[in-house]
Each structure stands twice: as structure tokens, then as C-alpha cells.
Design a protein around this nucleic acid. Sequence first.
RNA 1: CGGGGCGUGGCGCAGCCCGGUAGCGCGCCUGCUUUGGGAGCAGGAGGUCGCCGGUUCGAAUCCGGCCGCCCCGACCA
Length: 490
Amino acid sequence: MSRAKGRGRGVTPRAEDFSAWYNEVVQQAELADYSPVRGSMVIRPWGYGIWERMQRALDDMFRETGHENAYFPLLIPMSFIEREQEHVEGFKPELAVVTHAGGKELEEPYVVRPTSETIIYAMYAKWVQSYRDLPILLNQWANVMRWELRTRLFLRTAEFLWQEGHTAHATEAEAEAEARLILGVYRRFMEEWIAMPPLTGLKSDSEKFAGAVRSYACEALMQDGKALQAGTSHMLGQNFARQFGLKFQSEEGREEYAWNTSWGVSTRLVGGMVMTHGDDVGVVVPPKLAPAQAIVVPIARGDARAAVLERADAVAAALGEAGVRTRVDRRMHLSPGAKFFEWERKGAPVRVEIGPRDVERGGVVVAERVAGAGAGRKEALREAEAVAGMPARLEALQSRLLERARARREANSWRGEVSSVGELGEILDSGVGFVYSGWSGDPDVETRVKEATKATIRVIPGRELRSATAPQHCPGGGRARMEVVWARAY
RNA sequence: CGGGGCGUGGCGCAGCCCGGUAGCGCGCCUGCUUUGGGAGCAGGAGGUCGCCGGUUCGAAUCCGGCCGCCCCGACCA
């Protein structure tokens, strides 16, 4: 495709410069654009449509697990943020603060929420008196602001969209179960919808959320071998409850502090999708997330024009009835080829071409964005056959993407003995993403490894993800008390 | 916050050394012809050369200051 490249329409190949590839692809696919405000982005319709599909799917899952949506305010009194010790320390450096309003300086500054634990638990404290008022299981869809120094579209922006769940429970066990339940929801969502299979498990203390007792996380492996923290679920213990007076009277009449959890995923997931499935042509959107799953491109040549357009509309309508989100690209000032390139760049899963030859024989030409093994680039099918087969075709594509991503994750994982920091560094330098090893639990080891290799413990994997035989050796020394996964991360 | 780079029509760039009519490609507009992998021809619109100051008869170009953005490192969904 040197021609396209020469015309300045190509993309830097992933292998040449992954980060340049990412920036170009996100913009060329019209997922997002830079805004005039430093570090913040505009999410364009194609990108926002993907986020909306994610939102809908997650929202349904939250409801199925007993949660309701609510909304808490954007501005939080500074004093609230300052109440929980670790929480302030974690967030202070990246707070945006409102000091003036209505033409006057405020008596107490407000922070633009970086996360809402403080204001939400202050409200819960007001609403809860008895164990009968528990649990509270709320979620909110909101924007938050963290004043990042180094930003990237979707992956790290000053303002981003997310969902944050906040729950309050009468017992520790119940809160713990909630945090784990949500971790499972996230994992299932990422696999089934984004076709991005994450590792899940516990965070080490150094990586946990500011103010949490423990954090669980989903860590996905990107094509460049770096890990992306794609979702977190925190068991907050009674840390916030104590600071905000979130107390209740138990069945036995005792006054007790409630147990909290909080959990979130953000528009970062869109970036994860790009870095999981994208190729040197552009973005690849899994069918379940695609705002348009099938793009019908009429090839309206000469006097066949009217007939071609009519068939295109008919096929689109039939696809719509079959439950396929379909769009007809009727723009007449672009050649078919230009449309093919554009939709491939944007990652639409399937293209349906209809030209005079197809109309004549009652057929269409179908091309998939990511061809399956053995399948040709284009298939000439009868109209009815193409329509009837489309839902299955999309499902097959969806699962092909998941399998491909899972295979890549495993192919780029090192499961074996790693006995020194140097060896760990060498393995990472060879292109391996996730390195499994033993760990004593000593935080000094983590620090030393990070300094030497830039890798951190991404997760202490859950049982089902651990290696068949537990690693005996620990890079950095000590006796192996658990298995951990190291990686360089975003 | 430290190091590097860049600011010139919407986008990508040349011009800057060596001061003298602001240019190229893509895109955009109009018309005609086109349409099975990035259409062709003809005509056209669009620029306080990041900002402020200085030098000069004359500054995109030389000098000083400021601002912004991008890339690379320390902190983070």
C-alpha cells in the first residue's frame, strides 16, 4: 500500500512505532480528536457509539446484579477529599480546584471530582441508620477529572467518562463478596463484548487504590506487550465509613461502621479495544460494540444506478430485520474504493457490496474486516443467503477476535521459573508481556524490580489463572509465598 | 516537573542559513464526465506566517522575550 502511504493516508505500522500507530489510528478512525483544552479530548460519534454500546451492556449487567443508578454532584468540598488520609495523598497532585464562583472567592474551595467516594459516603451516612437500610448498591455514570501531566487519547486524559459503583454493607464478608462479584462482571464484560480477555486478581499494596483495604483489577495485554489496567474493584473496608460517620445499628443493637466497596471502568476501555484488535489498516471493532455492523456500499454505475440503490436499501432493510445494525453508504461523491478504505480504517465488521453485476444475478459481495482462516477476502453470495447468514457471521467474527486475543496473550506470557531480576528484565526485553513468578510479598522487591526493569506487579492472579505448577523462585529474592504477574504497564 | 522538537490556508509540509510579490500536496466549493479497491478535467475560495517587542527602507526569514502543542523520562482509571 505504498501508494496510499505516499499520499499520506497510510498509518505508521505497529511494528515501527506502536505509539504513533495508536495516535494516528484513533484520529483517522474518527474515534476522537484533540480539544482546545490541554489534555482533554472530544469523543466523536463513531467512538462515542462504541462507548454507548459498552455502557448499555455494563448497565444491564449492573442491574442484573441488583444495582441502581443515581447521580452525585461534580463539585466536592475540599474538606471532604482531605478527610481520608491515604485518599488525599493519592489524589492531591491531580486535583483541579474551583476557587471562584459568582465573581467572588469561595469560602471553601471545591474540587472537580477525581472520584466520588467522599461525597457519596457522606450522603450514605445521612441515609443509613439501621442494618435494615443496608446494603446500598448504587452506580453512577459520570465524568471525572484528574490533572494528568502526560495524556493520551482515551488512555489517559484530564477528563474522562466512567462509571463508578459505590456500595455499603453491614458485614465485611458481604462487601468482600461484592468487590469480587464486580470483578467477575468486568471480566465477563471484557471477554464477551470487547473480546479482550484480562487477567484478574488482587493488586499488591503499592498498586492499590488510595484509601482501599485491597484492590482487585482486570489487566489486559496490549499488542505491544504492555499491560493495561482496564478495570478495578475495591474493598474499602471501613476506612471511609469511619471518616464520614457511616454508621448503623445492627440486629443486636450495636452501633457499627458500614463496609464499603467502589469499582469503575472508563472510556479507557475504548483505547484497550483499539490496542487489542487494531491492525496496520486501522481500528477493528468487535461486532457487539460496532455502532454499525454491516456497511452496504452501492456501486451505482451508469444506468444501473437506480436499480443498485434500490437493492442496497432492500438488503439493508432485510439485514435490519435480521437484527443487524446496518448502514447504507449513499455518498455519491466518493468512489467505492474510497468507502472501502474508510470503513476498514474505522473497523466496521462487515461490508456488503452491491453493484450492477450483483443486481443482475440477485447477489451481493460480502467482505469481513478480519478474515477467518481459509476464508477469501470477498465472498459472492445470494442476497437471501448473505442476509440470513449475517448474524452467525458476526458472532463468528466476535469469537474469532476473542480467541485471537487470548492466544496472543498466552503466547506472550512467560510461565516458568524466573530467579533473578536480570533474568526478568531479559524476558521482558525479548518481547514477552506477562511474566509469572513467585513473590515473597516483600514490597522492597517490587521497588527494586521496578527500578531495574520498569515492570510492576500487575496482579496476583486469581486461582483459575495461576500456573499449573506454582513457581518456586522469586526474582529479587525471598521465599515464594504467592504467584504474581509482572509487566510493563500503561 | 526535567530533556528534545515543532508552531506558515482545514490537514501535512517547503520557504528561514543568504531579508525583497507567501508556495506545494491533500482536502474544500462550482460544473461536466465518472463509480467493482483511495476518480478525471476545468474553474474557484481560503493565510494578522503562534504572540509581543527590537534591528532594517523593507522581516515568515535576523535578535530578544513570552505563549502553545507534540515526543522522551519521574506520578496515575
